[in-house]
């Protein structure tokens, strides 16, 4: 009876299994890299907007405070995107004929809000509230990056669970005086100064990191 299996018959399965192991390992490593990559977390990606609104121009160069437009940030869960009338407080008089601003004028005339495409967003199962962060002195720049240097809005930090937890487990070095939350440049604060201020702020506000990573804080 002739041999069914040639001497090299199990070479191919072996190669197959070997390749399989390599592929699985690579997939795990790549996958791990991927979930933290800009592709998934959207960091630094810009999206098209109905009007090419520039934070660099308005917040950076003109120095308009964030709260001129995002008026809810101190008192509500949502910071609030500005109504068309807010643009018109200035653009009723300047750049009035600019084609770039045509959608703004149209929105005002029709009473239909501008449809901004959201950049900084959490999935619906995660709960977030601006007012508590702002009242404790977590500055905008900690979570949104250097907004004053963005010609088009992009995500400054990955809004992953790890990003939230990294701070919730040790908020002290991130805290700043609440009356300066919209300040973007903190380069004059040394690590010691931040640590010292943070320690006092933690005491003053009775912040307990041990409670801040309970699942129910953000998933409710």
């Amino acid at each position: 009876m002739p041999q069914i299996f040639t001497p090299s018959a199990d070479t191919w399965p072996r190669v197959g299994v070997g390749l399989g192991i390599v592929a699985v390992t690579a997939a795990i490593l790549l996958g791990a890299g991927l979930v933290q990559s800009a592709y998934v977390t959207s960091v630094d990606w810009v999206v098209d907007q109905p009007v090419p609104f520039s934070h660099l121009h308005h917040a950076g160069e003109l120095g308009i405070d964030c709260r001129y437009c995002h008026a809810g940030v101190e008192s509500a869960p949502n910071a609030g995107l500005p109504a068309t009338e807010v643009c018109m407080t200035c653009h009723s008089q300047i750049w009035t004929g600019a084609p770039m601003l045509a959608p703004v004028r149209e929105s005002l005339a029709k009473g239909e809000p501008l449809r901004w495409n959201r950049v900084a967003r959490l999935p619906d199962y995660a709960y977030f509230d601006h007012s508590i962060h702002v009242s404790r002195g977590v500055p905008c720049v900690e979570c949104h990056g250097r907004v004053d240097e963005m010609p088009l809005m992009k995500r400054g930090e990955p809004f992953t669970m790890a990003f939230c937890l990294d701070c919730h487990r040790d908020p002290a070095p991130h805290l700043r005086p609440p009356d300066q939350v919209t300040r973007m440049d903190w380069s004059d604060w040394t690590a010691e100064r931040a640590a010292d201020y943070g320690r006092r702020a933690m005491e003053a506000h009775h912040i307990e990191p041990s409670r801040l990573d309970d699942c129910g804080v953000c998933h409710r």
Partner: peptide
């Protein structure tokens, strides 16, 4: 769970004539 069937602030809402949830 990530996109629950509810209208969040700023989400388009075809139910209303001006298409806005707020």
């Amino acid at each position: 769970m990530a996109d629950q069937p509810r209208y969040d602030a700023y989400e388009p809402a075809p139910l209303f004539p001006n298409g806005a949830s707020v």
